[in-house]
């Protein structure tokens, strides 16, 4: 009989859940870092755009083409994008926090269960 088969199903389930949570956390962290980088880029672009005169010649990339645009319109678009990214980031941070605490409590539970099962 292998050692794997000696584990109670409830512990096996919790171990699988733990691994799943770890993977979820990694995905959240990678996405959070991507959004943070995006937010920095949007803020920098907004700052640069706002420093420029109102009649500055400005273009917006649409696929491979640069389309002439209007500074004010682009400022509005960037502000909207900034707010959206910030909201998504906040949601993701909450999700990260929740996943981390789930992970921690599951780890504690498992440690207790495993020490209990090896003692018995």
């Amino acid at each position: 009989m292998s050692a794997e088969r000696e584990l109670p199903p409830s512990i096996k389930q919790r171990i699988a859940r733990l691994q799943q949570l770890q993977q979820t956390l990694n995905v959240i962290i990678v996405e959070r870092q991507r959004l943070e980088a995006e937010l920095i880029e949007v803020k920098d672009a907004l700052e640069e755009l706002q420093k420029s005169p109102d009649d500055v010649m400005v273009y917006k990339a649409v696929g491979p083409i640069l389309v002439q645009s209007d500074k004010q319109k682009l400022v509005e678009e960037l502000n909207e994008k900034k707010e959206l990214t910030e909201t998504r980031l906040k949601l993701l941070e909450k999700q990260e926090q929740r996943t981390r605490s789930q992970l921690e409590s599951l780890q504690k539970e498992l440690q207790q269960a495993l020490s209990g099962s090896s003692a018995s």
């Binding site: 880029e41 672009a45 907004l46 010649m57 400005v58 273009y59």
Partner: peptide, 12 residues
């Protein structure tokens, strides 16, 4: 020059 300032925006 037409310079990229990020977020898909290019400024003169």
């Amino acid at each position: 020059v037409e310079v990229s300032i990020g977020a898909g925006i290019v400024l003169r």
